[in-house]
Design a binder for these strands. Structure first.
Length: 276
DNA sequence: ATATATCCCTGCGCGC
DNA sequence: TGCGCGCAGGGATATA
């Protein structure tokens, strides 16, 4: 499910439900997800106040008092669902349920269990093995076209694969990589270090635009993504290329059609007429 | 160090 | 209706 826009949508949906609230109880239904939950997971969470919710890359961060941060990743199929505790019903693949002091139940549901949760010292977050190698946030002001260009100059792989590499720029996943490349008119097989400064500026611009539009649409719901209140995302209706192979290229006056190819093990969609 | 392959897991849609 | 196959918003790990 979740690339940056989906995680951001979930974060925003959870703010009114969780910010400032106390975790009154936590139910845990298995030992872990991708990794085991940390020792004394429930005990350490219980009674903690959630000060605020932030996001880093595709990780959702719940900052608690006592300088602890609950790290949540949704993997491919993770969802967070907020309901009134009084009417809450446990569903298949609900692995963890948080109960707030304002009678809300927030269920973490993840069929494939590629997600993860960890509890770490906030000050040591950047040293965490999962965070240590993360690249720059796409909306970071420090990420200028020049900086982006320099990052790309160091890479000999295809630009599509480079965009998915979270060590360079974070948050872009398989959908938005294809979409941003199409919007930029850049072929996914272009070698990263062949992009000019102008290409880099263009691509960065479109990455930001696509991510913004997707956030505004509540993310993309293919199967799993839902906002915490159960609403679906709608950006999938605005896809130019993702999942649209064999249909005609939506670019004005382009007579090409969308192709699908596997790059770095992931499906990639593009128009070879208008992407060069 | 860097590029590809494999694995984790469940569910769904497709062809037969 | 059922079965097997391939594929799915991610990413760590092993292999060359």
């Amino acid at each position: 499910m979740p690339e940056l826009p989906e995680v951001e949508t979930v974060r925003r949906g959870l703010i009114p439900v969780l910010e400032g609230k106390i975790l009154k109880a936590i139910d845990v239904y298995r030992d872990g997800l991708r990794y085991p939950f940390p020792p004394l997971f429930k005990e350490r969470l219980k009674g903690q106040q959630i000060l605020n919710l932030t996001r880093r890359a595709k990780y959702l961060l719940l900052h608690l008092n006592e300088c602890q941060t609950l790290v949540i990743h949704l993997g491919m199929s993770g969802r967070l669902r907020a309901e009134d505790a009084s009417s809450f019903v446990l569903q298949k693949h609900d692995h963890v349920v948080f109960y707030s002091n304002e009678s809300k139940a927030i269920a973490y549901n993840d069929a494939r269990r590629f997600g993860l949760m960890d509890l770490v010292q906030t000050t040591r977050l950047n040293d965490h093995p999962l965070f240590r190698h993360l690249g720059v946030e796409p909306f970071d002001d420090d990420l200028t076209p020049e900086v982006f260009h320099n990052l790309l100059k160091k890479r000999q792989n295809s630009i599509k694969v480079a965009l998915l590499d979270q060590r360079m720029i974070v948050g872009v996943g398989n959908i938005y990589a294809s979409e941003a490349l199409w919007a930029s008119g850049i072929h996914p097989l272009r070698v990263s270090d062949s992009l000019t400064l102008k290409d880099s500026r263009n691509l960065l611009d479109h990455i930001r635009k696509v991510l913004k539009r997707a956030i505004e649409a509540g993310g993309s719901t293919l199967k799993d993504h839902q906002q915490p209140d159960g609403k679906l995302g709608y950006f999938q209706h605005q896809f130019a290329v993702y999942g649209r192979d064999l249909s005609s290229c939506p670019r004005e006056k382009c007579l090409g059609y969308i192709k699908k190819e596997t790059l770095g093990g992931r499906s990639t969609f593009y128009c070879d007429k208008c992407q060069n």
